[in-house]
Design a protein around this nucleic acid. Sequence first.
DNA 1: CTTGATAATGGAAATCATTTTCAATAAGAA
DNA 2: TTCTTATTGAAAATGATTTCCATTATCAAG
Lengths: 161, 161
Amino acid sequence: MPGRNGRGRIGGRKWQGMVRGCGYRLTIPRRAVMEVLSSTDEHLSAEEVYHRVHDQYPAVGLTTIYRTLELLFGLGLVSRLDFGDGRARYELSAGSPKGHHHHLICTKCRKVIDYTEFIKDELEFLERAEKGLAEKYDFEIRDHVIQFRGLCKDCKDRNNK
Amino acid sequence: MPGRNGRGRIGGRKWQGMVRGCGYRLTIPRRAVMEVLSSTDEHLSAEEVYHRVHDQYPAVGLTTIYRTLELLFGLGLVSRLDFGDGRARYELSAGSPKGHHHHLICTKCRKVIDYTEFIKDELEFLERAEKGLAEKYDFEIRDHVIQFRGLCKDCKDRNNK
DNA sequence: CTTGATAATGGAAATCATTTTCAATAAGAA
DNA sequence: TTCTTATTGAAAATGATTTCCATTATCAAG
Ligand SMILES: [Mn+2]
Ligand SMILES: [Mn+2]
Ligand SMILES: [Zn+2]
Ligand SMILES: [Zn+2]
């Protein structure tokens, strides 16, 4: 099956319009970072993105990866995640590959599980909460973070073995 | 009104039992850090805690503040928070002063608002979600993070002025 | 297809929160 | 009071991210 990459079309080329439209240039590093993020369902750190980009374009530097991720984050194309391991991690923003989802984080081995269950219940809860909070505190809510932390199957077992 | 400090009894001395009970010694720095956290409703960074402890006990070093916060966090007496400003922040764990609450974070000026509204709705949602997720992913959920990010009143106004 | 203005880049050095090291100190059981 | 050893403070190390700045590449204009 040539022309596929497992995670859907190799580039909802939509993002290019967003970048150009905001007056930014379309460069190799920017394409490469988007390509890397589009091709995985992992949550990569800047350095991990750097290594993968480096395989294809050895000339691209780590500094540029940081700058690019920041830019894409600013444009809303990429989400910056914090799983408490001391480095930022990134994934394509909700909408692109997996859609809206949240994370289960193992505090022992740092494994991260994406989940999309209960998004309906969540939506119901969030709708009410966001509306109420926005009103009460005169706050413009733009985003939310929901994480569950605990022990994954393996770590739980290994624990009381 | 002598003997009060605005935020309730100056030390639900309960924590001391927890510390001693786990085989840790009761030291000046540990008392001082608990005192500082008990006396505020702010979300202090390690360095901010250090400054406040320093006023009272100039001999206590920053390293010890880090160590102490880590210890208290490990014991569950203190919560470690991440508001995305590059440093960990701490508050007394839910239960002590304000009880279970979550945060509204202004991404512009970094103001943080504690809120306790919708905890009932939240509980309902969480109960179902946690149960379902724990079962489906064989995951032992121990904690959750819920944050709303956006613009506070002032930043919102200042924005489209 | 050039050209030119300037946005973008890469490497080295700087930052800055947090951790590690290690000799000196103090908590608390006996 | 004594003794064992957990705890501490200062200095150095670490590690992710940022800043600097001279060089390069994008792309609008001709
Ligand atoms: Mn994810
Ligand atoms: Mn709080
Ligand atoms: Zn695990
Ligand atoms: Zn604000």
